[in-house]
């Protein structure tokens, strides 16, 4: 067997096992915490529409049986596995009667469209600037960059988001205060919509992008300082290799640990996405997950965790492959091992 095939197979096996464990956890965990999914739905009903106790009781029974929550736990579990195997994530309790898959697939594109470019760009720019700062270590440029990084990475995320919102949307009124597009428009491939989309995109993007630059920049600077102090850099320098090329060496060599960081960060990205969504009322999957959790919507929690965890697993899988491409040490290590 080709070593690369072997490597891929091993990775696939590993991720499949992780996925199965994740499936079990997503079933057990929401049910293990105290509280009850249907009761919260019922509370909504009691606070808004109900005036008769009979109606509440009736609704409670109906909800329990509709979602199969009156069945024994093992039966629910078999049911759940059966559905997942068929790609069915069930119906949300909180957002009844929306199907969990519909909820996720209608909001996930927004999260992806925001997070993927913002995180990638901040990662790239952060690493470039960080490396550059390390190269110009202890100069004015470095001082300026480094302090900017520190500030950007240390400011609590939502405060930064609110700062952008208050400054550019509320005070200066350059950008809209909420949403993913102008509510009067219907999402479509028209110039008006695209313009509105990009207009609304700017602030959420910037908030992730800028804080991300801080995080990646600080890390990259530290690592690049180490790289610049390393023997090979010293040697290349004394062999006459020009500065610009040394910068590239450093950049390339910090990429590997930074890619690890990136893939680990992906899990947290969901949290970051939630905050962006909340501050800018931007469409996305984070808030859905959050609502699902606080209302204990088992179906929604299960569904979103499966999707989120799968995408994180997938991203990690891709990173593993990326590693192999970028860092020969790892690639050769896998192949020869």
């Amino acid at each position: 067997m080709h070593p690369i095939t072997k490597f891929l197979l091993r990775k696939i096996l590993f991720y499949t096992a992780t996925f199965i464990i994740m499936l079990v956890i997503t079933f057990v965990l929401p049910r293990a915490i105290p509280g009850n999914a249907v009761l919260m739905q019922l509370r909504q009903f009691m606070r808004t529409a109900a005036t008769n106790p009979e109606a509440i009781e009736e609704r409670y029974r109906a909800l329990l049986s509709y979602f199969g929550l009156d069945k024994p736990l093992w039966e629910q579990f078999v049911d759940y596995l059966w559905r997942v195997a068929h790609g069915d994530l069930g119906v949300s309790i909180t957002f009844f009667p929306k199907r969990v898959s519909d909820l996720i697939f209608s909001s996930l594109p927004w999260s992806l469209a925001l997070l993927v470019p913002a995180y990638t760009a901040s990662w790239f720019v952060g690493n470039v600037l960080g490396t550059y700062a390390a190269h110009r270590r202890n100069t004015a440029i470095d001082n300026a960059l480094f302090s900017t990084f520190v500030v950007l990475s240390q400011v609590p995320y939502f405060i930064f988001g609110f700062f952008l919102l208050a400054t550019f949307a509320v005070q200066m009124r350059i950008f809209p205060t909420y949403g993913g597009w102008d509510v009067g428009l219907v999402p479509s491939l028209t110039w008006d919509f695209i313009r509105s989309y990009l207009h609304h995109y700017a602030l959420p993007f910037l908030s992730i992008f800028l804080t991300g630059i801080g995080v990646w920049g600080t890390g990259a600077r530290t690592m690049a300082i180490y790289e610049f102090g390393s023997d090979y850099m010293e040697y290349a320098d004394s062999m006459g290799v020009p500065e610009s090329r040394l910068l590239r060496y450093a950049f390339k060599n910090i990429l590997v640990p930074q890619i690890t960081g990136f893939s680990m960060q992906l899990g947290f990205a969901v949290g970051g996405a939630l905050l962006t969504e909340i501050v800018f009322s931007y469409p996305g999957v984070g808030w859905l997950l959050y609502r699902g959790t606080i209302t204990q919507d088992y179906m929604l929690i299960q569904g979103s965790f499966i999707v989120v965890a799968s995408s994180v697993l997938l991203a990690n899988f891709i990173t593993d492959i990326l590693y192999a491409v970028i860092d020969p040490r790892i690639r050769k290590g896998y192949v020869s091992a």
Partner: peptide, 28 residues
């Protein structure tokens, strides 16, 4: 690889655009 990454990033930007049916345009 870089080309793929850039393509994925750009494509993801367009995901929301693509995920809608091309409904008739409505103004603000």
């Amino acid at each position: 690889l870089s080309a793929i990454v850039v393509a994925v990033v750009l494509a993801s930007l367009a995901i929301p655009l693509g995920s809608f049916n091309t409904a008739s345009a409505q103004g603000a």
